[in-house]
Computed example of a mutant assay.
Amino acid sequence: MNRHRKLGLLAILVLPLAACQGERICTAIGTPVGIQVDVAPPLAGRVAAAEMEVCQAGACRPARLELFDADGGGSNGFGDWQGLSKEPARVMLKLTGPGGDTLVDRRVEVVPRGRYPNGPDCGEGGPNARVVVDGDGTLREVP
C-alpha cells in the first residue's frame, strides 16, 4: 500500500472519532422497576423462601422475589413491580426458614427513586427502591 493510501485510510478512521469526542454516548442499559432486597448474615443463611407485597397509591400487589447468595454470607434479590412511581410505597416482606417457620414478617416505608445508569446526561431510568434486612431482621430503606 502506498503512503498516500495509508494516510487516506488513517484519516477515514480518525476523523469520525474526533467528531464524536465531545458527544456523550448513552448505552441502552435499563433500570429495573421494583424493589431490591439485601439480607445480611447470619439471617441470610437461614432463609429458604421470601414473599414480598408492595402497596402504592391504594393498590397492593405481590412482587415475585427470589433471593440469591451474595458475597460475605448475605443474599439479595429483586422484586419486579411494574407501575411503581416515585411516590411513597409500603413494602411487606416475609422470610421463612426451611421448615416454613417465619423468620421475618415486617413492613417498611420506601420512596422509590429514578436511577441514572449512564449518568444524568443520559436520562433517568425506571424508579426503584432498596430494602436492607439486617442480621436481626430489622428492615430499613437504603437510598
Rank of each mutant, 00 (worst) to 15 (best):
71 D>V: 04
70 A>W: 01
86 K>F: 07
114 G>Y: 09
142 V>Y: 04
124 E>R: 12
26 C>I: 08
111 V>W: 06
67 L>V: 07
68 F>C: 00
75 S>R: 05
46 R>Q: 15
101 D>F: 04
32 P>H: 06
87 E>I: 06
31 T>Q: 15
59 A>E: 15
63 A>I: 04
64 R>G: 06
47 V>P: 01
112 P>A: 11
43 L>A: 03
127 P>M: 08
23 E>Q: 11
93 L>P: 09
98 P>R: 14
44 A>F: 04
125 G>C: 01
68 F>T: 09
142 V>T: 15
49 A>Y: 03
130 R>F: 07
56 Q>W: 01
107 R>Y: 07
26 C>M: 02
10 L>F: 11
104 V>I: 15
109 E>I: 11
143 P>Q: 11
106 R>D: 12
44 A>W: 04
122 C>E: 02
39 V>R: 02
24 R>S: 12
60 C>F: 06
80 D>M: 07
80 D>Y: 12
10 L>D: 07
132 V>L: 05
128 N>K: 02
61 R>Q: 04
17 L>D: 10
8 G>H: 05
52 M>D: 02
94 K>V: 15
78 F>D: 03
129 A>T: 00
89 A>I: 07
35 I>Y: 00
45 G>S: 10
14 V>H: 05
75 S>E: 00
103 L>C: 08
82 Q>S: 12
130 R>Y: 03
43 L>C: 04
17 L>V: 15
55 C>V: 11
119 G>H: 05
8 G>K: 05
67 L>W: 01
139 L>C: 06
49 A>V: 04
115 R>Y: 14
100 G>D: 08
109 E>M: 12
51 E>Y: 06
48 A>M: 03
4 H>C: 07
27 T>Y: 09
120 P>C: 03
67 L>G: 00
138 T>I: 06
75 S>H: 00
109 E>S: 13
130 R>Q: 09
138 T>V: 09
50 A>N: 02
33 V>N: 14
122 C>F: 01
32 P>N: 13
62 P>V: 02
33 V>H: 06
29 I>H: 09
61 R>D: 04
126 G>R: 13
88 P>Q: 12
143 P>A: 14
74 G>R: 00
69 D>T: 12
58 G>R: 08
16 P>R: 07
101 D>P: 06
96 T>D: 10
112 P>S: 07
111 V>L: 14
108 V>T: 14
19 A>P: 03
21 Q>C: 09
122 C>R: 02
111 V>H: 07
113 R>L: 13
61 R>Y: 01
128 N>G: 06
58 G>L: 02
88 P>C: 03
108 V>Q: 10
72 G>A: 00
90 R>M: 11
41 P>R: 08
96 T>H: 06
109 E>Y: 08
64 R>S: 12
31 T>H: 08
36 Q>S: 15
20 C>S: 13
89 A>S: 13
133 V>M: 01
44 A>K: 02
127 P>Q: 03
44 A>Y: 02
66 E>L: 08
2 N>T: 13
34 G>P: 03
60 C>R: 11
95 L>N: 11
138 T>S: 13
8 G>T: 09
55 C>M: 15
30 G>M: 11
83 G>V: 08
66 E>D: 08
96 T>L: 07
61 R>C: 00
49 A>T: 15
30 G>N: 14
86 K>V: 15
107 R>T: 13
27 T>F: 12
81 W>N: 08
63 A>G: 14
105 D>I: 07
116 Y>L: 12
2 N>A: 09
52 M>E: 04
50 A>K: 06
96 T>Y: 07
